[in-house]
Every structure is written in structure tokens, then in C-alpha cells.
């Protein structure tokens, strides 16, 4: 075949088309190879859990495991709610009112992971140290949280996180 300009153009087109398809094919193959590392269906099936708090008496707390991490649910007493509300927001390191952190004032739902370096704070079980503010105390580096789970003293930068949750009935909380 003679190398006329016209032939050259067609030749380039078919070669470019072939190389483009190779690139598209490689990208299509890459997708499953990458996506397989995302959470699998059985992991996602447990991404949200339902917790029945009907049996949780005032003053008691339970810890549930959600996405591999602890979630603290505390049925707060009137004094604890009052203590949380009486705190002046301006004095806080991470200013947040108690009302911003709860859906029902008596039921506090927070993630039990210290915002400093990820330890699990004490204060859930009867007799555990609750820290200077009667909430939670992280033994790793001495962070004190109040009855709303807000940081009050110690190295942690922010309040204990509130996970996404909703009351799907009076007593059942859906976390996640």
C-alpha cells in the first residue's frame, strides 16, 4: 500500500481507536480490582444496627458495638441533664449546647472513642472513674468529658462524636 496522506490518516485513526479501546478496557478491568477492597455486602449489612433501650433504667448505660467501634448509650438522670445544660457554652473548648447533641434529653448516644488518639474512655460501668465532670474519663492521656460527652479537660481537641441515629419507635434506636 502506498503511503498517501489519505491512507496515513485512516491508519492513524484505526491505531488510535485500537489504543483507546485498550485504555477503556483497562479502566473497566481496574474498577472491580479496586472496588473489591470496599466493604463487602455482609459488612454493609451490619452498617446500621437497631438497639432496644426499653430496659435501660435511669442512671444506667450500655455499650453497643457499631461498625466495629463502641457506642455509649446513657439514660441520664435529671441531675446529669441539668449539669449538662448549666454549663456555659463559651467556656468550652468545642462549643456545643447539650440540646445540639441529643434527640431526647434523657437518652445520650455518643461514640465511645476519645477524640485524642482513639482510646475508649471509662465511665460506662458502675464504679468506673467518670472523671472530674461526672461524664467519662480517658485513661490513656487523661481527657475528662462531661455528662454530655463534651471535652472539658485534658488533651482531646473535640467533644465525643454523636453518631447518626434515629428513634424508630419510643424504645428502639437505629444507629447508622
Amino acid at each position: 500500500m502506498t503511503d498517501t496522506a489519505e491512507n496515513k490518516g485512516r491508519r492513524d485513526f484505526i491505531v488510535v481507536a485500537s489504543n483507546t479501546m485498550m485504555a477503556v478496557g483497562a479502566a473497566a478491568v481496574a474498577y472491580p480490582l479496586i472496588n473489591q477492597m470496599n466493604p463487602a455486602a455482609d459488612t454493609l449489612a451490619l452498617a446500621s444496627i437497631e438497639v432496644n433501650v426499653g430496659a435501660l433504667a435511669e442512671g444506667q448505660a450500655i455499650t453497643v458495638k457499631w461498625r466495629g467501634k463502641p457506642v455509649f448509650i446513657r439514660h441520664r438522670t435529671a441531675e446529669e441533664i441539668a449539669a449538662a445544660n448549666d454549663t456555659s457554652v463559651d467556656d468550652l473548648r468545642d462549643p456545643e449546647t447539650d440540646a445540639d447533641r441529643v434527640q431526647k434529653p434523657e437518652m445520650l448516644v455518643i461514640q465511645g472513642i476519645c477524640t485524642h488518639l482513639g482510646c475508649v474512655p471509662l465511665g460506662q460501668k458502675v464504679g468506673e472513674i467518670k472523671g472530674d465532670f461526672n461524664g467519662w474519663f480517658c485513661p490513656c492521656h487523661g481527657s475528662h468529658y462531661d455528662t454530655s460527652g463534651r471535652i472539658r479537660k485534658g488533651p482531646a481537641p473535640t467533644n465525643l462524636e454523636v453518631p447518626p441515629y434515629a428513634f424508630i419507635s419510643d424504645n428502639v434506636i437505629k444507629i447508622g
Binding site: D3, R10, R11, I14, V15, A17, S18, M21, G25, A28
Partner: peptide
């Protein structure tokens, strides 16, 4: 479908490269 089309395209590409 993709691979069958690509069979023709890569064959065409090969033929053009080999045409000289």
C-alpha cells in the same frame, strides 16, 4: 460486545501497521 468490537479494531490496527 466490547471485546468482539475490539477484535475487529485491533485486527484493523494490526493490518494497517503491517501494510508496509
Amino acid at each position: 460486545a466490547f471485546l468482539l468490537v475490539m477484535c475487529f479494531v485491533s485486527y484493523g490496527s494490526m493490518r494497517y501497521i503491517w501494510s508496509d
